[in-house]
């Protein structure tokens, strides 16, 4: 039995905070759960927080890309936040560039990025009062 990663909902954004190093089964479970939750909640943004993850292999790297692609199919933008320097270096050494995945330094910047992306995409929302 592998444990399930909790998926939290804040407004119309889903927050996945990965707190442990994942094994392959829990990665697949997360993929299933997340796809179901995106449809269920009609979320338009997914934030995956990996600030607690110390080891990333090519499988997890591909998982992040896959989740981003699935979410985009369901009209939700994915942002990966809080990647550690060591993890970033490992991914580069592995030759993975996570194409198509947006990244942000921390959760705050990630949420802002989603907001901006949504503002650009959704013409119906009120114009922000900045000038």
């Amino acid at each position: 039995m592998s444990e399930r990663v909790p998926i939290l909902q804040i407004g119309d954004i889903l927050l996945v905070s990965i707190q442990t190093d994942l094994d392959d089964q829990s990665v697949l479970n997360l993929q299933d759960d997340l796809a179901a939750r995106v449809v269920e909640s009609a979320a338009h943004g997914v934030v995956i927080d990996i600030s607690a993850v110390e080891i990333v292999d090519s499988f997890v790297g591909r998982m992040l890309a896959t989740i981003a692609a699935i979410s985009r199919m369901l009209d939700a933008e994915t942002v990966v936040v809080g990647m550690r320097p060591a993890v970033a270096i490992t991914l580069v050494e592995l030759g993975l560039s996570l194409g198509g995945v947006s990244t942000a330094l921390n959760l705050d910047l990630g949420l802002r990025l989603l907001e901006r992306a949504r503002g650009g995409r959704d013409g119906l929302t009120a114009e922000p009062t900045a000038s």
């Binding site: 990647m83 320097p85 970033a88 270096i89 560039s97 330094l105």
Partner: peptide, 12 residues
């Protein structure tokens, strides 16, 4: 190039 790509992965 590697440094730049790693920074991009982190969102910078």
């Amino acid at each position: 190039l590697k440094t730049v790509v790693a920074a991009r992965l982190m969102g910078a």
